[in-house]
Amino acid sequence: MADPRPDGDHDENGVRSVLRAIDLLGLFTEDRRAWTVRELTSASGLPKTTVIRLVATCEQRGMLWSGKDGMITVGPGLLRWARLAHTAWDLPQPVLEAMAALSTRCGETVNLYVRSTVHRVCVAQHEGPRTIRHVVPVGDELPLWSGAASKVLLTGAEDEFLRRVSATSPHGEDLVGQLSRQARQAGEDGYSVSHGEREVGASSVAAAVTDREGKVVAALALAGPTTRFTGERVRDFVDATVNAARRVSSIGLAPASTSEPH
């Protein structure tokens, strides 16, 4: 049966070829910077001919680079995008100072997350001073269905969006009702607490960062080993994180950080 779509390259979530190219680029990480075509084919699950075509296209735009040894790595064209992203998401110094002060007071790592489609992305971090600490690299995408920061970022989300988020979890749409309740509670309280939702042994306290209209634009999160997030400490962490989030809200984030999430 012929594809009824004009170019056969679209689905309800976007342009399929573009999504495939982005997913292919997403395989390149600091821990794995070079791949062969065979390895990319295996890791992506795409046909070899598709991988070869995507690699060639990305090379034309400088996004990928093939060496004489047959290894493929990120291309110099990404340097421009990296510089642009750094500039767009460069936070005001007072915000960074507020994050550092929260980390020093509580002894844990502080992250700032924003919502990006059905994920949350860490846009800034101040590592905790302790040897054993929780660290999420800046730029990492994390699931929006788990963690204290996610509940804060889902404040006010409609059921249709919650269904999209739930579909990315191991629980499927069975999670919609729970997410709705947790997001509503986070909206009423202005913060959320989680223990071992995304990773066993890790806990977090997150508070809402809002714009001038009171809309949630980010989540300020304090994270660390669950063994250090005892009842008494969590109460102190909540007070400290909420106050820090209010401080960040009063300062304001970079212009890009306050745009409408999709």
Score class of each variant (00 low, 15 high):
Met1Phe: 02
Pro4His: 08
His10Ser: 10
Asp11Asn: 15
Glu12Ile: 12
Arg16Ser: 09
Ser17Ala: 11
Ser17Phe: 02
Leu19Ser: 11
Ile22Lys: 02
Asp23Ile: 05
Phe28Ser: 02
Phe28Arg: 02
Glu30Arg: 10
Glu30Phe: 12
Glu30Thr: 12
Ala34Met: 09
Val37Ser: 03
Gly45Val: 05
Gly45Asn: 00
Thr49Gly: 12
Val51Pro: 03
Val51Glu: 01
Ile52His: 10
Arg61Pro: 03
Gly62His: 05
Trp65Gln: 14
Gly67Met: 10
Lys68Val: 12
Gly75Leu: 11
Arg80Tyr: 08
Ala82Gln: 12
Ala82Val: 06
Ala82Asn: 09
Leu84Ala: 07
Leu91Pro: 00
Gln93Ala: 07
Val95Lys: 01
Val95Arg: 00
Ala101Arg: 15
Thr109Pro: 07
Thr109Leu: 08
Leu112Pro: 00
Val118Lys: 11
Arg120Phe: 10
Val123Gln: 03
Gln125Asn: 05
Asp140Arg: 13
Glu141Arg: 10
Pro143Phe: 07
Leu144Ile: 13
Ser146Ile: 07
Leu153Lys: 02
Glu158Asp: 15
Phe161Ala: 13
Leu162Gln: 10
Asp174Arg: 15
Leu175Lys: 10
Gly177Lys: 00
Leu179Cys: 13
Ser180Lys: 15
Ala183Tyr: 11
Gln185Trp: 07
Gln185Thr: 14
Gln185His: 02
Gln185Tyr: 03
Ala186Glu: 11
Gly187Val: 08
Arg198Cys: 09
Ser203Val: 06
Ala206Glu: 02
Ala207Asp: 13
Thr210Asn: 01
Arg212Asn: 05
Gly214Gln: 04
Lys215Phe: 09
Lys215Ala: 15
Val216Met: 03
Val217Thr: 14
Val217Asn: 05
Leu220Ser: 01
Ala221Val: 00
Leu222Gly: 00
Ala223Arg: 01
Asp236Met: 06
Phe237Met: 06
Thr241Glu: 07
Thr241Met: 01
Ala245Lys: 00
Arg246Tyr: 08
Val248Glu: 02
Ser250Ile: 05
Ile251Lys: 04
Leu253Glu: 05
Ala256Val: 05
Ser257Asp: 02
Thr258Cys: 06
Ser259Asn: 04
